[in-house]
């Protein structure tokens, strides 16, 4: 029973790392709520989305272990992310220049 399963050899962070990431996520949440009250004009949406993107990358990399997975996982993730970006870009291109 002492033999660890070799399939689970990839290392994972300990309790401390997860708690640090959680604190960072809470900090970013309070930042985004505070900033929403400040009038940044046309940059408001950009800042809100930027903070959301930072929070997601923390969740995906650490909580969802993508940082510690094999390379192919990262390729798949990038591919689906790019698909979404292309769909958004093409739709707005069509919508704005119609």
């Amino acid at each position: 029973m002492q033999h660890e399963n070799p399939k689970h050899k990839h290392h994972h962070p300990g309790y401390g790392t997860y708690i640090l990431v959680w604190l960072a996520l809470l900090a970013f949440t309070s930042i985004t709520v505070t900033i929403a009250g400040v009038n940044l004009g046309r940059y408001t949406l950009f800042v809100a989305l930027l903070i959301a993107a930072i929070k997601s990358s923390l969740v995906v990399n650490i909580f969802m272990h993508i940082k510690f997975e094999e390379k192919i996982f990262k390729v798949f993730l990038a591919l689906s992310g790019m698909t979404l970006v292309v769909i958004f870009a093409l739709t707005f291109f069509d919508f704005i220049y119609r």
Partner: peptide, 23 residues
Amino acid sequence: AGLYWHLVDLIWIFLFPLFYLIQ
């Protein structure tokens, strides 16, 4: 199961500013 749960969290990370934080 954890991955599924994190996805639910991820979607909320975007829903929250887009619906609740527009000024």
